[in-house]
Design a binder for these strands. Sequence first.
DNA 1: TTGATTGGTAACCATATGGTTACCAATATA
DNA 2: TATATTGGTAACCATATGGTTACCAATCAA
Lengths: 114, 114
Amino acid sequence: MVTNQHLDRTFAALADPTRRAILADLAERDATVGELARPFAVSRPAISKHLRVLEGAGLVRRRRDGRLSRCGLNAAPMREAAEWVERYRVFWENQLDALSHYLEQNPQEKEQTR
Amino acid sequence: MVTNQHLDRTFAALADPTRRAILADLAERDATVGELARPFAVSRPAISKHLRVLEGAGLVRRRRDGRLSRCGLNAAPMREAAEWVERYRVFWENQLDALSHYLEQNPQEKEQTR
DNA sequence: TTGATTGGTAACCATATGGTTACCAATATA
DNA sequence: TATATTGGTAACCATATGGTTACCAATCAA
């Protein structure tokens, strides 16, 4: 496998609803871990783990500020994920189930891979 | 949690490199399970499991044709995923990441090294 | 009809994930 | 200084994931 672990981690991070909600929060303002945890019915260690996953994917940056941990969004890794998915847009827009149709229109793009 | 299980399953399906490679294959042509398994150094049951995950996410359709199982791409579920990620484009395009956010709100700390 | 091909299921294994409670370290504050 | 707040770690648990081998059912072909 040619593993693109960046992409693995980004998609995996986005696969959890709590983590997507955390990212949505951070898109509006930086926040402390406590502020991020408040809306959720889970313990702080659980949020801490989610933040570690998000940090591992590079989507969140944490910096200690006194006893507070301030978190901020870093959307940069999403770019690659967006680009990966974008290549399939032609399929969902034109109801093309297989590339036979696609190749009729774009024979030069045959080498497209992950 | 407001769980969007569609999105959960789509992102989770995309988080595995073998599954992304299968989708890339299917973007070029419909294929049987055996054809899909050939490039990979894993057993057919493993591919079968990956296909079940992809089917569960609605990304692959399987239909039995004699003793062959023909698989086809259905990119439709990627649309929602693409839309979700798209909302963050402004962040990765304008470098509105955690650090610049933070510095906008805390200009006195600009001279700190990282 | 016999045998090879295709692909699915069963059972199992190791590891990862997402959650918990209990506790600890550091920091701010009365 | 004593205490409350913040958030991290440790240990544990249940379940999911990704892989294996062994086997089975169906179908195609000699």
